[in-house]
Design a protein around this nucleic acid. Structure first.
Ligand SMILES: [Zn+2]
Ligand SMILES: [Zn+2]
Ligand SMILES: [Zn+2]
Ligand SMILES: [Zn+2]
Lengths: 408, 408
DNA sequence: AGTTGTTCAAGCCGTTCA
DNA sequence: TGAACGGCTTGAACAACT
């Protein structure tokens, strides 16, 4: 029914209309709830009802419990007394045509909720929580205070051959310029045996070992300091702290070395001193470890991670619940889970471009890749120690050993 | 009086207005109880009343006893004197519109209590209470001290045929390897009549009976010890202790046998000695008992219960309130209820997988199944005793008899 | 714009316990 | 007996979908 004047209506019709409008304006709204007479704003479940009766009907249908009238089962329902008899109110709801089929089923509701949640996740720009930001800040801070990227403390380290640092070699060449040899690492490791044969006369087979031991020892100390700087790490039991460190030290060290790895020149640029893979060969390590390790450094470096991502990797490695000797598995698992989520969110947030979605899985793959090398590293260190026992530090042995150690 | 700021008011007017609003809100909040004039915080049973009159009305309705005014039946009710005349207070309650129908009925209250309890159970993470843990510990402890799962005391038992224990029979075959016969129990029981016919010449018809009697007697003694080890059992009257034991002994014995039943080979593996169902046939028991009993052992064993669950089953069987002769029905009922809840919680707690939700009902079904066999067992034991009276022990007869016995 | 479900503070039930 | 409390119900306001 149109309320607009058409110009074709009679006076009585106009008066009638006016009356209608008056009654309408008296009631404020033209429509009253069919159940209780309260103001109705629209149809609900196929009947004109107020908000109260709408909610009541839905809840009554979903409860599916039998209601009983405490009076005579013929209560008249009004706006004021509608709360006093649920049974008669529901009866009246159904009487005026409210249909229970129009209440969404439990399943439908569940599907709807999931749909909305997903939609929300997509709409809201992913954002780091303040908790996650704090985590990153703590890690960055701890990392920077315990990682000397200029490797300025190297002055005291032992050398078995004349040092060649950058300033001494003049303009850096694109070939491998390391402190022990200018030969570049290009492919095979077969040279080792020859070298062993050559240098066995000195009774020191692994010429680079003393220096690498000092470097490694130094870095292990830093990694311990880094771990100790983390609140979540400190709050673990001493046994678990040791278990995590023993498991992760090698991995964190490699992640830290990766930050100074030049994937074009295959050189680790540690301040004034540079290393190439042959230095590890000369320290006694075998291709079984070095080949995948070298590949790993290339793969990881090519990802072009930022400091935050590197440091999150270190933390994820550290808080690996499945290290041998770990007691509070679930606690550490949750910590690592949070770190993983933080890294994922960080990447989603800060990264742009198409590689964004692949970066996180690739980082995780790198972490997994490293897991396979830790054991081989320990094995080779022990082998080296058999041959040249004096040049492995006690700290390295502790990390490599399976026995508990607790002196840090 | 408009409360909207007009922009033309002075500061003092604005302050005044604020004061007015405060006084208004002060006056409006404390509405007076329609019965006694005390402060009313809301409607109760359809009238504006204080907390006191609310509680009074409910109690008065639920008591449903006639009240008499000690005065002139026209006491005026005030906050201070409302306690002095219940009759006039209730009259006033009804006069101002409080309706007895709006007090929940006994039935509704009961339903509500159950609903809330269930809700609580669902919400709180399922966990055994310390009381329940203690119960399980006591049962486990009592069980282990009274159940020799190696059946090492069998050495003294009588045999009518050469013993075949595991060590003597060499590698166990998948067929029935029992101490009386190597025939496997595969289906029917028809052999019995033939066997009876064959062996009646020896005047000992039931060849396995002496051994089975010794075994049963031995186990009954253990079951009595088990029961006696339980605090809740000891605290019952002697009469009820006897009634429960007479009712449950057969069931507990079967539960204990089930713990050593191999459902693949159909053999009860009692330490070095093994039994198959034919041994019971040879002791004189009939298919009417043995067929459902065998089925029961299969069903129960297939559930793969753990010791805690078995021991809770034993206790639930023991504390069955509906055994003949039981006096303190409600006490025992509550004990069994607690045990049932403990078992249910234990399963919810310790079990995983989809069968978790079906396990408890299945265990209860097994207990019910056994109930139907107890009487048949007694009947058959008495029949056997008619034929071969010397080979049934007094203790078995006591358990089986309907008469009171009190010598344990 | 109309009609679903959702949220949550206020309201009112029974229960507890001093 | 009644103040305090736990738990369910209500319904106004809101969000999401079509
Ligand atoms: Zn309504
Ligand atoms: Zn009604
Ligand atoms: Zn009052
Ligand atoms: Zn009176």
């Amino acid at each position: 029914m149109s309320k607009k004047p058409t110009g074709a209506e009679t006076i009585s019709e106009a008066l009638m209309r006016q009356n209608e409008e008056e009654t309408v304006s008296e009631d404020e709204e033209p429509r009253a709830c069919g159940v209780c007479g309260d103001q109705a704003k629209g149809y609900h479940f196929n009947a004109l009802t107020c908000e109260g009766c709408k909610g009541f009907f839905r809840r009554a249908i979903k409860r599916s419990t039998q209601l009983r009238c405490p009076f005579l089962n013929k209560c008249s329902i009004t706006k004021n007394n509608r709360r006093s008899c649920q049974a008669c109110r529901l009866r009246k709801c159904q009487a005026i045509g409210m249909r229970k089929e129009m209440v969404m089923s439990e399943k439908e509701v569940l599907e709807r909720r999931i749909r909305i949640k997903k939609k929300k996740m997509l709409d809201t720009p992913i954002q780091l929580s303040s908790q996650q930001k704090e985590t990153i800040q703590e890690l960055l801070c701890g990392h920077r205070r315990t990682f000397d990227s200029a490797f300025s403390s190297f002055s005291g380290f032992r050398y078995n051959q004349p040092t060649r640092d950058k300033s001494a070699t003049g303009p850096r060449t694109s070939s491998c310029a390391n402190f022990l040899s200018s030969s570049s690492f290009c492919g095979s490791f077969e040279k080792q045996k020859n070298r062993e044969g050559e240098e066995v006369t000195k009774s020191i087979i692994f010429t680079a070992l003393p220096h690498l031991t000092d470097l490694t020892t130094y870095m292990i100390q830093d990694i311990i300091s880094f771990s100790k700087s983390l609140q979540d790490f400190r709050s673990l039991t001493m046994g678990d702290q040791i278990a995590l460190l023993k498991g992760a030290t090698f991995e964190i060290m490699q992640i830290r070395f990766n930050m100074v790895f030049n994937a074009k020149t295959n050189i680790w640029e540690c301040g004034h001193i540079t290393y190439c893979i042959d230095d590890a060969v000369r320290a006694g390590f075998q291709p079984l470890l070095l080949e995948p390790l070298f590949k790993f450094h290339h793969t990881l470096r090519t990802l072009g991670l930022q400091e935050e991502e590197y440091v999150l990797m270190q933390a994820m490695s550290l808080f690996s619940p499945d290290r041998s000797g770990v007691q509070q598995h679930s606690v550490i698992d949750e910590l690592q889970e949070n770190l993983a989520l933080t890294l994922k969110t960080w990447i989603d947030c800060k990264r742009t471009g198409p590689e964004k979605h692949l970066l996180y899985p690739k980082v995780v793959a790198c972490l997994t890749e490293m897991r396979t090398m830790t054991e081989e590293y320990s094995k080779q260190v022990l082998q080296i120690q058999d041959i040249q026992p004096d040049d492995i530090s006690p700290l390295i042995l502790e990390v490599v050993s399976r026995n508990p150690c607790d002196d840090f």
